[in-house]
Amino acid sequence: MPVFKTPFNGYSVKFSPFYENRLAVATAQNFGILGNGRLHVLDLSADPSLPIGELAAYDTADGIYDVSWSESHDSIVIAAVADGSVKLYDLALPPTSNPIRSFQEHTREVHSADYNPVRRDSFLSSSWDDTVKLWTLDRPTSVRTFKEHAYCVYSAVWNPRHADVFASASGDCTLRVWDVREPGSTMILPGHEFEILACDWNKYDECVIATASVDKRFPLVCLNGHGYAVRKVKFSPHVRNLMVSCSYDMTVCVWDFMVEDALVSRYDHHTEFAVGVDMSVLVEGLMASTGWDELVYVWQHGTDPRAP
């Protein structure tokens, strides 16, 4: 299975919505605590036994915590940077022209970025300054700032069907659902006793949201299985009941939340904290993960990620 060695510790990995063999990886030096960051854009070879190629790499002065592909331009990538900036990169332009834009409004580390999949002209960033900001590509300043969370906002994710609705997960132990057309959040869900590190909307049932927490559990059905804080959670774009999660216990787990024994697979290929995980929209079952062991794995669900 393809594997790629990154110089810094991996924080996030995302498949391109336009090309099935392309993904972006956010990395940060010294586990994101101090030092530089780098954004990698990787191309998988058609032959899985061949190594992953690097299409582009961009250095940043501080760690990159998250990455998001544009849904409207196949060559644009957004990076959430630990120095509080949100940077836009265009793969079609030479490295000297990148980043094409740097939004510097957050006052603390930016922890996540998510592009609107329905409207396709806007994206969100969430930050340790307790806010979520809404941006469009054509405006130099944020369109709006959402300030209700009382602690770091680790994740903000758009609803896959409603163009104006998103959810945010925070260390204040709440998940909030927002409509950008309303002045405040429309729903507050105190679903955990500890910090919530990630959230995602089900792609087929808009009433289902998964949250990942320091308490190691998912609240809708309590999915127990991870030994430490759950860092990311993702619903499958192909199967309603399937989800994937990654954790500080160094594993990536696949779950079916509708069955009694929810744990479908556990992958323990990472040798350090597993921090980023994604499922391909274009290829069913294709997964990617990255972690602080400085490795990016790409594998088909059901196979061994470490197999050569």
Binding site: R119, D121, L134, T136, V143, V180, R181, T186, M187, P190
Partner: peptide, 19 residues
């Protein structure tokens, strides 16, 4: 502290035109 939502679904909420 949990903050109050300003309105339920059908209240005459103040809807801004963000876009």
């Amino acid at each position: 502290h949990a903050s109050a939502c300003v309105a339920g679904d059908s209240a005459a909420y103040q809807r801004t035109s963000t876009f």
